[in-house]
Design a protein around this nucleic acid. Structure first.
Length: 579
RNA sequence: GCGCCCGUAGCUCAAUUGGAUAGAGCGUUAGCCUCCGGAGCUAAAGGUUACAGGUUCGAUUCCUGUCGGGCGCACCA
């Protein structure tokens, strides 16, 4: 169900295009440049377009003169908009007709869960791969951040009409999982008194012993006796994946598929990708790369290397060529990654968004170049780096040591501050920016905590609706003219922006716009509530205002739902202040 | 040496893919509850958007350079 707002947006675009036609200056290219935005300052109207300023130069007309012509040629539905106005250096501004403002709460109520959603992307297939943590340990805080961002991106993309799904890539083919198996085997041996050393660089965390303790004893004993590391690896892997699956499910991050790296090896896709790259003339065998513009001093330290197979990634923007098959004949990480992403494209996805950790940003260029060498669209791969998280407690950074197995996990966070609050905090900042996560603040249930500020607004909205319902008052479309209190108009304006914010957040891959918007919407509601008594003796006015309150409930709830955060109808009362 | 991210109010951060007078929260100061949830609201103060140039009607946003902070630069994954 398309949202009313987007109909307005597309309608204005069409009317502006028609105006250009009336003026005899229409072209497909110019029409495509028509942009509409919601101005920051309400004095500038409800919608604005800068098209006159963009076209002024090529049409050799002063921007304001052109804007005036466009405004006059623009014929809008008077039920939606008043006449277009020209302002500033040449903006064309549109202002809602009073009747449309008054009808918006009812429209929002009619759309309910669908408000904010639309089908603008027309089913474009897009995949979001996120978390993809190694199955060798518990999920950490960066994984938790990636899970919040990735799941929200999937929801945002669906809300804007994409055919989107999430995927978790399981690195089950590297030597880390062998090490995991060996570590578990060692812990199991220890538990039954058999001497077996933990391998060098083996995993030390106490969870390894937990996994070992859950193994079926007789089978494990038999596997130990025949030195069967594969048995331990597979059982440890199953256990770790079940663990991660459970944590992520409890956290609210869903994946359409858990894709195992071993699959592209077993299917022959790795070999096929290599053969195709060779057939395209994108590879060569050598000891050193033919192209290396990295200027790196370290890359010169390859004196003892043997002849490897190199990929000409430098032809596609990389600063040097990359090894895809080592001198010993085994592939580097790059080749299975290429095969995996080729598989994504073959599954029909037109875009692949990957969320990677901060330590992987050096791999964006090589992989992107390799995919182009394979002939995929240059815009197929989009990589978002999920930057690191600094946990703060008592104003000090929380020290974490992975070696000693001491770190805050996703599960710890859920236990400590709750999944709702954790997700809200992770979504508050830009994905690629470092994030300070204040554990003390997240645990506070007061106005300093933005998650509670927004959830409280929802609870307060529900409280007003309950209060009214107890007196037999239900929301209903009321007398428009009585709604014109400035705070009520401001609130309607804020609510009406929601679909535009969703569209922008999805387009820019910036989930943080949703919590920012919700904080603004909550503030707008609180101002309205403070200044306008909702439930009064004037039944007609009360019902009209209740319609607005109910629309606020829908918008806040829908926004929180996009973030995967609950919208409580009640919250525990604050402690009474000490006398 | 090369590459990526970042630099905005005392602090933490916004700013609608280049828009109109750069905004919130915290902290500070001064106010608002016989009334729908005061977990709230109002007001004041706080800025050469690190610095210097460039592109144009217009720059926090894009380009170049400088300074400062973080991360990465393997025939590891």
């Amino acid at each position: 169900m398309p949202g009313a707002w987007i109909l307005v947006w597309t309608q204005l675009t069409d009317r502006l295009a028609a105006a250009l036609e009336t003026l005899g200056v229409w072209s497909e290219e110019r029409a495509a440049r028509i942009e509409l935005a919601v101005p920051r300052d309400p004095a500038h109207g409800d919608w604005t377009s800068n098209i006159a300023m963009l076209l002024a130069k090529e049409l050799k007309q002063p921007p304001r003169v052109l804007a005036q012509k466009i405004a006059e040629a623009c014929v809008n539905d008077p039920a939606l908009f008043g006449p277009a106005e020209v302002a500033g250096p040449g903006f064309v501004n549109f202002r809602y007709a009073p009747g449309f403002v008054a009808s918006l709460p009812a429209r929002i109520a009619a759309e309910n869960e669908a408000f904010g959603h639309h089908d603008h992307a027309q089913g474009l297939r897009i995949q979001v791969e996120y978390v993809s943590a190694n199955p060798t340990g518990p999920l950490n805080v960066v994984n938790a951040r990636a899970a919040a961002v990735g799941a929200t991106l999937v929801r945002l993309l669906r809300a804007t009409g994409h055919d989107a799904e999430g995927e978790f890539y399981v690195n089950d083919a590297g030597n880390q999982v062998d090490l995991l198996g060996a570590s578990v085997a060692a812990r199991f041996a220890e538990s039954i008194g058999v001497p077996l050393e933990l391998p060098a660089n083996g995993y030390q965390g106490s969870y390894i012993a937990d996994v070992a303790a859950e193994l079926p004893k007789t089978e494990a004993r038999a596997a130990l006796d025949r030195s069967d590391n594969t048995w331990f690896r597979e059982h440890a892997l199953d256990r770790m994946l079940a663990w991660q699956r459970k944590d992520l499910a409890d956290y609210g991050a869903e994946f359409a598929q858990w894709f195992r790296e071993s699959r592209v090896h077993a299917s022959g896709d790795v070999a096929k990708s290599l053969a195709e790259l060779e057939a395209r003339g994108m590879t060569y065998r050598a000891i050193k790369p033919e192209v290396d513009a990295s200027g790196g001093e370290r890359s010169a330290d390859t004196t003892d290397a043997s002849e490897a197979t190199w990929l000409r990634t430098s032809r596609f923007g990389d600063d040097k060529d990359r090894v895809i098959v080592k001198g010993n004949g085994s592939p580097t990480y790059l080749l299975p990654d290429v095969a995996y992403h080729r598989d994504k494209r073959n599954r029909g996805f037109r875009h692949a968004i990957d969320l990677w950790g901060p330590d992987h940003h050096g791999h964006i260029l090589p992989l992107d170049a390799a995919l182009q060498a394979l002939g995929l669209e240059p815009d197929f791969l989009e990589v978002l780096i999920v930057q690191q998280v600094n946990l703060l407690a008592g104003g000090q950074p929380v020290k974490m040591s992975k070696r000693a197995g001491e770190f805050i996990t996703l599960r710890d966070l859920m236990d400590d501050v709750g999944a709702d609050c954790a997700k809200f905090f992770f979504l508050l900042r830009g994905t690629s920016a470092h994030l300070d996560f204040d554990l003390d603040l997240a645990k506070q249930q007061n106005d300093e905590n933005p998650a509670f500020y927004v959830q409280y607004a929802h609870a307060r909205v529900c409280s007003v609706l309950r209060f009214a319902a107890e007196r037999g008052l239900e929301p209903a479309r009321g007398d428009l003219t009585k709604l014109l209190a400035p705070e009520a108009i401001a609130l309607v304006r804020t609510l009406a922006t929601f679909p535009e914010v969703v569209r922008g957040a999805a387009f820019a891959r910036e989930p943080q716009r949703i919590p920012s918007y919700l904080m603004e919407a909550a503030a707008s509601f609180h101002r309205f509530y403070h200044n306008c008594r909702v439930v009064t003796d004037d039944v007609e006015l009360s019902r009209a205002l209740l319609q607005l309150v109910d629309a606020t409930r829908i918008v806040v709830r829908n926004g929180l739902a996009l973030m995967g955060v609950s919208a409580p109808e009640r919250m525990e009362r604050a402690m009474e202040p000490a006398a």
